[in-house]
Design a protein around this nucleic acid. Structure first.
Lengths: 238, 238
DNA sequence: CGGAATTTTGAAACCTTTCAAATTGGGTGG
DNA sequence: CCACCCAATTTGAAAGGTTTCAAAATTCCG
């Protein structure tokens, strides 16, 4: 008989990611302490509102969120996904306004991110996280500007695969993907109907599996070759 | 008879922009001194190469450049324009790699941007500049993801109009625009043929004038209404 | 089990690209 | 100053990709 083990490691993905981004053991300890005070945001709720002042930086612990922008006529564009280990609203500039609304796409757990005063050693990891955020944004521009629907879809799945890998959330090339096809469409600049057709093609071609909230990319390298995706590098120290 | 006046103010647009972004008189003096050592990059030359380490931050003094990414099959996407007063390759992180190649679209004059050691007062202006850069990038994502060809084209012209205004480069709603339609197409994620058709429509509708390298937007507010563009805000202090 | 949200399907309309060729414009050399 | 050339712009018609609209099938959740 097995004693119930308190789930102290459930925020591990976020800590793992920041550790890999350069946070040392001491910093991780501070992060773990911060993650103790865990908050929950229900799906569809805003985690940050565009135009509001950014009071604190938040750290994603679990679930999916997205930066979004909505046009006057209701069209919506997701600017990027926020995954466990990502920072929300990081901003050097004091009194800055949030550029974008951040909405929870699934139920999200988060905590207040330790400030650099509390853990100066986090500076590099935070900087690295920000740099990767920008790299992802640039990738998103190329995706929307120059890839066709099939390439876009495959490319986004690969980005997600890479990012979740860094947080240790990919097992056997499979990962949780708590999105609707409509959310995917809003990220990809397509209609949900067309995303559906692209997904069918990817499945038919054996490039993708996705049911019950879990997706698998059997052969990421092959898919990357198919959609012409290169690796994302950010720092000189590999 | 008029004596030849040395063109000491030709870098004024960059200084004007950074002044408006919060640089004080002392900082402007440092910038002006830096701008003394003016460099020239010929059109089509790289100002920064993707993957290389960023050694110094550069300040655009005149001309147009763009962050670019090129796909394996030759498709090109411009990630954003760099205009006078913009910083090239700014990066907190030491030893960071350039995210993107920056190419001169026209002949470009630039100088090495003063470091914060030389002029600590520039911190805010630099931060502000970076924040606006991100805002423009986000706007670009929405443009590519959710606007149709006509809206994209109009929206980009409006962004350029706004940014050049900040540098004092707009007179009577007109400004220099040393681009080819193909460059515009690479920014807009369209073909140059289609950009041409959209420009014709904008001209026909009286929303735009463009010949001989100079563009004019007779009624920016009307065009903004037509393409559904809102104002870009970045800071709480207006 | 019922009801709502999501996924799937089909056909037609629409927007954008492609391809090819004609036209214009700017710069150079004779 | 004109002739010429190359790059850039413009035009047309057809092909292609994506959206739209509607409706059916499926899945999820209480």
């Amino acid at each position: 008989m097995i004693a119930p083990i308190p789930d102290r490691q459930s925020d591990t993905p976020a800590l793992l990611r920041l550790g890999r981004l350069g946070a040392g053991p001491a910093d991780i300890a501070v992060l773990a302490a911060a993650a103790t005070d865990k908050r929950l945001a229900r799906a569809r709720r805003d985690l940050l509102t565009e135009g509001r002042e950014v009071s604190e930086t938040r750290l994603m612990l679990g679930g999916w969120a997205a930066r979004t922008r909505i046009l006057l006529d209701g069209r919506r564009q997701l600017l990027g996904f926020l995954l466990p280990g990502d920072l929300i609203g990081r901003c050097d500039q004091p009194r800055a306004l949030a550029f974008t609304t951040v909405v929870a796409l699934s139920d999200v757990t988060w905590c207040v991110a330790p400030s650099l005063d509390q853990a100066p050693g986090l500076r590099d990891a935070y900087a690295m996280s920000g740099a990767m955020g920008e790299a992802h944004l640039l990738g998103h521009v190329v995706r929307l500007g120059r890839l066709n629907a099939l390439e876009r879809t495959g490319d986004l799945f690969l980005e997600v695969h890479e990012r979740l890998s860094l947080a240790g959330l990919v097992v056997a090339d499979g990962f949780e993907l708590p999105l609707t096809q409509e959310m995917l469409a809003d990220a990809l600049g397509l209609t949900s109907v067309h995303v559906n057709r692209m997904l069918q093609q990817l499945r038919r071609d054996g490039d993708l599996t996705w049911h019950g909230g879990r997706a698998t990319i059997p052969d990421p390298a092959a898919l990357a070759r198919k959609v012409g995706r290169g690796p994302v590098r950010v720092s000189a120290n590999p």
